[in-house]
Simulated assay, not measured.
Amino acid sequence: MATLFIADLHLCAEEPAITAGFLRFLAGDARKADALYILGDLFEAWIGDDSPEPLHRQVAQALRDLVDSGVPCFFIHGNRDFLVGQRFARESGMQLLPEEQVLSIDGRRVLIMHGDTLCTDDHGYQAFRARVHQGWLQTLFLALPLFIRKRIAARMRAGSKAANGSKSMEIMDVNQQAVREAMSRQQVRWLIHGHTHRPAIHPLEVDGEPAWRCVLGAWHREGSMIRVTADDVELVAFPF
C-alpha cells in the first residue's frame, strides 16, 4: 500500500480531458491507496461552495465515492482554490488541513504544503496573497452575488496571467532559504509540495543532515503524483 499526493490539476470545464483523467485516477490507482492528499489548486478557480457549477458536483461525488470505499482524502488549499470551504468538504468527504501539515509515514516525518508560501522572491504575489487571505475580505467576497464573484475571479485570473508573463522563472520558483527554514522549523527531512509546476525530487541539506524536496507536476498533458511507501518515495507521471 502507498500514500498518494497530487496537486495542480486546475480542473475547469474548458479542460474535460484533465477532468476525465482525474476521475479515472480516483476510480483506479487512488482506490488502492492508504490515503490521498491533494495539495492545492484542484480547481482553476473557486468562487464559493455555493457555485452551481456541474463540474464541482461531479468531482465532489467522485471524491465521496473514494472516501466511502475506505480511502481517506485530505486537502490543503492552493492559491487558486483557497476559498474551498466546509460545505464542499462535507459534500466530497475531504478533510481540510492547514497550510502546513506534518505527517508520519513509514517512519518518515513529511511536511506537506501547496508551496506558494515558499516563493518569497515574488514580492508582488506575496503581498497579493496576504490581502486575499484576510478573513473579512473573504467574508465580504462570498457575500456578493455569484455573477459579480465570477467577474471578479475572471479579472483576477487575467491579471495573474499578465503579471506572471513578465516575471522570470527564478522569481516564481521557491526560495531555497525559505525551504530550509520551513523544514528546520517543522523538524522534517522530507517536504512535498506543488505550485511551481516543476516536478522533481531535489536533494538538499537541512541542519547539517540530508533532506529531500519533492515537487509535484501540474496535470497539463499527463497526471503527476508522488507515491510514498515503506521502501521508497517516487515521483510518477502517468497518461490521462
Rank of each mutant, 00 (worst) to 15 (best):
132 V>T: 13
169 M>D: 10
81 D>L: 03
83 L>E: 08
203 P>K: 12
92 S>E: 07
104 S>C: 06
208 G>Q: 01
121 D>W: 03
201 I>A: 12
153 A>R: 08
176 Q>V: 12
80 R>E: 01
75 F>H: 07
196 T>N: 03
52 P>M: 05
20 A>F: 06
140 L>K: 12
200 A>R: 14
160 S>P: 08
156 M>S: 14
35 A>I: 10
213 R>E: 02
99 E>K: 11
136 W>H: 14
76 I>S: 01
203 P>Q: 13
169 M>R: 10
18 I>G: 04
210 P>T: 03
85 G>Y: 07
57 R>V: 11
48 G>Q: 01
108 R>E: 09
106 D>V: 00
12 C>R: 14
232 D>W: 03
106 D>A: 13
3 T>F: 01
46 W>L: 11
202 H>M: 13
49 D>F: 08
131 R>M: 13
91 E>L: 14
130 A>M: 04
143 A>C: 07
184 S>K: 14
75 F>L: 10
232 D>L: 07
209 E>L: 13
140 L>N: 07
72 P>S: 04
92 S>W: 10
67 V>T: 14
43 F>W: 07
239 P>R: 13
144 L>K: 09
27 A>P: 02
156 M>H: 04
73 C>T: 15
182 A>H: 12
8 D>W: 05
49 D>L: 07
50 D>T: 04
83 L>V: 10
5 F>D: 05
194 G>V: 11
13 A>K: 11
203 P>C: 11
190 W>T: 14
216 L>S: 00
78 G>N: 03
16 P>E: 02
169 M>W: 04
3 T>I: 10
209 E>Q: 15
156 M>N: 13
214 C>F: 00
35 A>V: 07
26 L>H: 04
34 D>N: 12
179 V>H: 01
202 H>D: 12
221 R>M: 06
145 P>W: 05
231 D>G: 09
138 Q>E: 02
199 P>W: 11
152 I>M: 06
58 Q>T: 15
166 S>Q: 12
11 L>F: 12
106 D>P: 00
129 R>I: 09
164 N>W: 01
62 A>C: 06
15 E>S: 12
16 P>I: 08
30 A>C: 05
34 D>R: 14
112 I>D: 02
156 M>T: 13
63 L>K: 05
40 G>Y: 03
28 G>K: 02
216 L>Y: 00
192 I>E: 08
26 L>D: 03
115 G>V: 03
89 A>E: 11
76 I>M: 00
53 E>A: 15
4 L>R: 02
230 A>W: 01
4 L>S: 00
45 A>L: 11
40 G>R: 05
23 L>E: 15
112 I>L: 11
175 N>D: 15
114 H>G: 03
